[in-house]
Design a protein around this nucleic acid. Structure first.
Length: 637
RNA sequence: GCCGGUGUAGCUCAAUGGUAGAGCAGCUGAUUUGUAAUCAGCAGGUUAGGGGUUCAAGUCCCUUCACCGGCUCCA
């Protein structure tokens, strides 16, 4: 019979031949690298019998599909190792994930990091044994009997339809309920490494038992595995918690878990960031407001926060009245709106607020600046007429994209979330709102993913996910339409008809949380912030004490121009000062000695570069001013 | 909140149940240096807090707190 190859040619093979035979006849090297096959677009076991005229492609371990197959197979081997070493272990599920795989177990006793070594050794023994993976298809009854001792598998089987084709895979002594596909034998998996042990709820529900999850990864070769581990080590060096301490930007203390303390250098970065933020917002037609941190309970009851979020709020009692620390800025923002009367002519009204909010996050979720209990939202509320929504959303999208580009976040994933089951407002309102968001996205020529039913109860929203240099994604910006708040807090404007109408309220953040965004850019830049954000932009290094006056003169000239400069007067060698400047990620260093004093020049060294360039003083200062200039702000349309 | 792990000097780490130590950072002095670490000296600790076992606890047990890896959560 004949089968079709990916290049369009056909190949004659024996009746009942498998993809393994196809690989063999193409070449022994391919046969050795093969881990699975793609038949008619589906990835299947290599030994699946082929039918006449089928399209066949060999999947090797280095392809994305192949990687998934070896990782999923590695998960099975981990499960075999675990049941071998710890009899009585119950197995749950073990899928391949983005960077590897995991398997969830219920162990008869606690299993910790030390056990990873033992499990790793057992896995390597099993890989060396080249155990074949054998697929078997069984009925539901048979499956229930086969996994009688495995409560988690039984639960999965019971949820399958009665006539489902249930497959099992056996390698060595271990049989698992599994859809497949798998590699032909454990020798094809390549290199496996276990990474960490963690807890995870059965089926992801916090009411269920907590299982022990073991994370690992697999690569076609030891070399690729080692490279991966090295990348992880590099990422650890970029951890903003480490860099924040090393660069003296911020700290955390036992006296305030989850509450960051910003040091002078950290505040320099934040202030530079906020200056840029304010210029962008002014240019985009926003006014800035500020509202109190603590407001009366009644406001939170009217806004709906009391009922929905009081478990995450902080409270206090003043003169026998309950107050709450704000977890969001919007109720305060609406009070500013209500302080005046508004005509349709005044709208849209764009009110921005760098609002500090407090949320009592659960203790286990805190993580450096990424998840804190006190943070600053770069919030804004836009009050507008229904027919202005589309233009306003487009304006927000433009602002977000412009600001993200500044940080090199040019790969943005956008999600549009629509009406959830539990929601308020009329069908017509939702339809209009969703269409306005879609139209704005279309006009912005932004591709997006639809998340049906994932919107807030009060309105649909657009979320923006940015991707950093390490390929991780972060949800930062969001733009939400709100029908509820204007209603609940009785906002109005006077229309052309001299009647009172409800304005539409739009919530949006661009950076999300200033604290978290700082953490993201610290890791994104590996601590080497662009010059306009660097806490110290220029370090002036006098060669000897006698050059100090000239060094000071330069520093003062730079500071006079609004730059952040320091003179390193320590009695250390030039080399040492340069080293400290490099370690401290200072973008520019000026070494001044006899030559510079005499010629009234500066010798400039740029961060991370060995070569230096000499400039006349005025020329050097002008260059630094340009280099440290904050990003340009686009003009208001 | 849940599972597992870790808490020793500012940081990175040592110390069989038996006298708490090193490097870096800091301070003092010497040195006056030309592009990634000059030398010497000094100081630095209720071993996270509390309780227990023991002749003796940084080390073993209990507990509280914080942190780390995850899970759930993130309006």
């Amino acid at each position: 019979m004949k089968v079709l190859l990916p290049d369009g040619s056909d190949l004659s093979v024996a009746e009942g031949a498998s993809a393994a035979d196809v690989a063999e006849s193409i070449g022994p090297r391919l046969a050795k690298a093969a881990v699975a096959a793609k038949v008619g677009g589906r990835v299947v076991d290599l030994n699946t019998p082929l039918r006449e005229g089928e399209q066949v492609a060999i999947v090797t371990a280095s392809s994305p599909e192949g990687l998934e197959v070896i990782r999923h197979s590695a998960a099975h081997v981990l499960a075999e190792a675990a049941t071998n070493l710890y009899p009585g272990t119950k197995v749950a599920i073990g899928p391949a994930i983005k960077d590897g795989f995991y398997y969830d177990f219920e162990f008869p006793h606690p299993v910790g990091d030390d056990d990873l070594t033992r499990l790793n050794e057992e896995i390597h023994r099993l890989l060396g044994a080249a155990l074949p993976f054998e697929r078997r298809e069984v009925s539901k009854e048979e499956a229930l009997e086969l996994f009688a001792d495995e409560p988690y598998k039984l639960e999965l089987i019971r949820d399958l339809p009665a006539d489902a084709v249930i497959s099992t895979y056996r390698q060595g002594e271990f049989v698992d309920l599994c859809r497949g596909p798998h590699v032909p034998h454990t020798g094809r998996i390549g290199a496996v490494g276990l990474l960490s042990v963690a807890g995870a709820y059965w089926r992801g529900k916090s009411d269920n038992t907590m299982l022990t999850r073991i994370y690992g990864t697999a690569f076609p070769s030891k070399k690729e595995l080692d490279e991966y581990l090295e990348r992880m080590e590099m990422a650890k060096q970029r951890d903003h918690r480490r860099l924040g301490r090393e660069l003296d930007l911020f700290s955390f203390h036992d006296e305030g878990p989850g509450f960051p303390f910003f040091h002078p250098k950290g505040m320099r970065v934040i202030n530079a960031l906020l200056e840029y933020w304010r210029r962008e917002h002014r240019a985009a037609g926003y006014e800035e407001i500020r509202t109190p941190l603590i407001l009366e309970r009644s406001l939170w009851e009217r806004s709906g926060h009391w009922d929905n979020y009081k478990d995450n709020m902080y409270f206090t009692v003043i003169d026998d009245v309950d107050f709450a620390v704000k977890p969001m800025n919007c109720p305060g923002g609406t009070l500013v709106y209500k302080a005046g009367r508004h005509s349709y002519r005044d709208l849209p009204l764009r009110m921005a607020e760098l609002g500090q909010v407090h949320r009592h996050e659960m203790s286990g979720v805190l993580h450096g600046l990424f998840r804190v209990r006190c943070f600053t939202q770069d919030d804004a509320h836009i009050f507008c007429l229904p027919e202005q929504v589309e233009d306003e959303v487009l304006g927000v999208i433009d602002l977000i994209r412009r600001m993200y580009n500044t940080f090199g976040f040019d790969r943005v994933h956008v999600e549009l979330s629509t009406r959830p089951e539990k929601s308020i407002g009329s069908d017509e309102m939702w339809l209009t709102a969703e269409n306005a968001l879609k139209a704005a996205l279309q006009r912005a020529e932004l591709p997006y993913v639809l998340n049906p039913g994932d919107g807030a109860f009060y309105g649909p929203k657009i979320d923006f996910h940015i991707e950093d240099v390490m390929g991780r994604t972060w949800q930062c910006a969001t733009c939400q339409l709100d029908f509820a708040m204007p209603e609940r807090l009785d906002l109005d404007y006077v229309g052309k008809d001299d009647q009172r109408h409800r304005p539409v309220m739009l919530h949006r953040v661009v950076l999300g949380s200033i604290e978290r965004f700082l953490g993201i850019i610290i890791e994104h830049y590996g601590g080497a912030l662009p010059a306009w954000l660097a806490p110290v932009q220029i370090a002036v290094v006098p060669v000897a004490d006698r050059h100090a006056p000239y060094a000071h003169e330069i520093k003062e000239a730079l500071e006079g121009a609004g730059l952040r400069a320091e003179v390193d007067l320590r009695s250390e060698s030039v080399s040492k000062k340069i080293r400290d400047g490099e370690v401290g990620k200072v973008p520019f260093m000026l070494v001044v000695g006899d030559r510079e004093v005499e010629q009234r020049s500066v010798t400039l060294r740029m961060r991370g570069k060995r070569d230096t360039v000499s400039y006349a003083l005025a020329e050097g200062l002008a260059l630094l001013m340009t280099e440290c200039e904050p990003p340009a702000v686009a003009q208001c349309p």
